[in-house]
Design a binder for these strands. Structure first.
Lengths: 337, 337
DNA sequence: TTGAAAGCGTTACCAC
DNA sequence: GTGGTAACGCTTTCAA
């Protein structure tokens, strides 16, 4: 029953009438590189200003590209997600795009609904930060001429571009750091999200440890959060054989883990326990934590997205891998104890 | 030079052709409460599905409301902002709106550019979370039939609706808590942002203290951030007369302040120093901090926004005030030392 | 219930 | 350099 009067925006026709020129002249005035005489231009601008005219991008999008990019994202409050959204919106804007944010859950149904919205609004491109859209819907997007860019997602879907951080490298490097610190009893903390990224970090870490003849105690807590990190620590240090070196697949998990390890179990970091995280969220650098971790290079990633957008032909089924950057802080000893 | 081929979306006409019906029939099939025979409907849906048709909301928005809401926001990575954006996008979506996020700086020029985008995309409404838009532009939005909702902003602009948290209450209550804890030397930490909200929290706190015959040492650090909180602490405790009770106008400031107070100056909280924050960001509840603070009731605020959107007539020049909720944790002593 | 047609605000294309 | 016109995809009259 939305009997709300639709907004009454001023149109090019109104401006034309007031300026005593044609619609076309108005349009040209607002189109880069169109030829309008200085006199006409001035008249138009004056009328437009007086009336408060603004070009209707919706109507423009009817014939050409809409310049809308949809961002499909879940867990927006998570520091790493918030930064991703921040960087992306910023860079997209700078390249003349406008961002529609679709805040979704990670289940397939929600993500599908998000993709349908993307189609409804004729977005030029859809950037997926969370969840795994069904292949069929991605295909629909693509066959409609839309670009689909998946960030840190598992699948390499036909026709979509993929962009992700090198999780394997982080898994290997995390092991190296802990071993160099002289850690003998390794632990890995992960969440129950079972994202491809998280799973890969875990798998590579465990595998690399096995190659050195070491077994890793894997602890899977609840969702990917600070609280789950706490819970994991309670479980881990409640057991007889406690680890002295731990890789948390996410900074948030690491911070919760550290807090409980120190406060509830009296462990000193890095003396009794070394911890490595992943993401390099802002809090990882706070004085209370000084977490050694891997930075997701968000700016380069966003640049890559913009680049993909500007050169769609390059994008098809391409998979770009970006190296995370190790950030050494104080949660891991620089050498053996 | 954007010679990019525009996306080729499937239109209602194509669906009509395939289904052997008219455009109108297709439109009606996708319009709630329109009368279509079951047979036609089925034919249309089948064709639409086969073709991957999705109603073009851009074209629809040409005649009626666009259902687009623009969110103008700065400092998106700040936990409190991230949560605001999260809650708002969620609730707006639930009420059938789609959110365009415009990530802006707080200077007037950037905010103006954001408002112009809002007009360009024919948003039904603009929600301003950051910065102060010039009155003239707000007027343009409103005269174009757009709704403008300012959240935690200073101005009460003609025709716009305003929504904010009761800063005065927080200032008064913060003083009460510190006094009850027996604090004698009061400090206030703020940033150089000089936002109306921050200024008000400061002013009320200082004034309430004056009413009790106490002088407050005000320290203004850099931008509103963790680092500024650290900087403030270094300055405050470098002086001869250090405070024993501090109100930080923002949690982020408080957390940085606490870290330096404890680690660099060996102060015990709340024994040597009591700290009160504002916002109740997630980190305020972390074990390392346990900050006593005031929660911004984000859900009620977002509900209010949605409500305003659905009943525009109610909105005109209305100013709604929402009470922040005190959250007692461990950074303030429950009673005198 | 259905289809034809008008109109929404643009921009691209054509004449002039 | 300028104005008219078609086209974009939709919803909403209006007749049938």
């Amino acid at each position: 029953m939305s009997e709300l009067k639709p907004p009454s925006f001023v149109s090019a026709q109104m401006v034309a009438d007031r300026a005593g020129v044609s619609r076309s002249a108005v349009s040209r005035t607002f189109t880069d590189g169109a030829s309008v005489s200085e006199a006409t231009r001035r008249k138009v601008l004056e009328a437009a200003d007086a009336l408060g005219y603004h070009v209707n991008h919706l109507a423009r999008g009817l014939r050409e590209r809409s310049n809308i990019v949809c961002l499909v994202v879940a867990d927006m409050t998570t520091p790493i997600r918030a930064r991703m959204v921040d960087v992306l919106t910023r860079k997209l804007q700078a390249s003349g795009k406008i961002t529609m944010v679709i805040n979704t859950e990670t289940d397939t149904e929600s993500v599908s609904a998000a993709l349908r919205q993307t189609l409804n609004y004729r977005a030029d491109a859809t950037v997926v930060l969370s969840g795994t859209p069904p292949a069929s819907l991605i295909e629909t997007c693509i066959s409609n001429g839309q670009q689909v860019i998946l960030i840190n997602r598992d699948e390499r879907l036909q026709g979509s571009s993929s962009l992700g951080v090198d999780n394997a490298m982080a898994g290997r490097e995390a092991l190296f750091l802990l071993r160099r610190a002289g850690c003998e009893r390794l632990g890995l903390i992960t969440s129950n999200a079972r994202t491809a990224s998280l799973v890969e970090r875990e798998a590579v870490f465990v595998e690399a440890a096995a190659a050195e003849g070491l077994q890793v105690v894997v602890t899977e807590a609840g969702p990917t959060s600070y609280e789950s990190g706490q819970e994991a620590a309670r479980r881990v240090f409640g057991r007889s054989e406690a680890p002295d070196g731990v890789f948390c697949v996410t900074d948030l998990l690491a911070l919760g883990f550290m807090d409980v390890a120190r406060r509830d179990f009296g462990l000193a970091i890095p003396d009794d326990l070394c911890v490595v995280g992943f993401d390099d969220i802002e809090q990882a650098g706070w004085a209370s934590y000084q977490l050694t971790t891997f930075r997701q290079p968000l700016n380069p990633m966003a640049d890559e997205v913009v680049d993909l957008l500007l050169q769609p032909q390059r994008a098809v089924s391409e998979r770009r891998m970006i190296e995370p950057i190790p950030v050494w802080r104080r949660s891991v000893r620089p050498g053996k104890r």
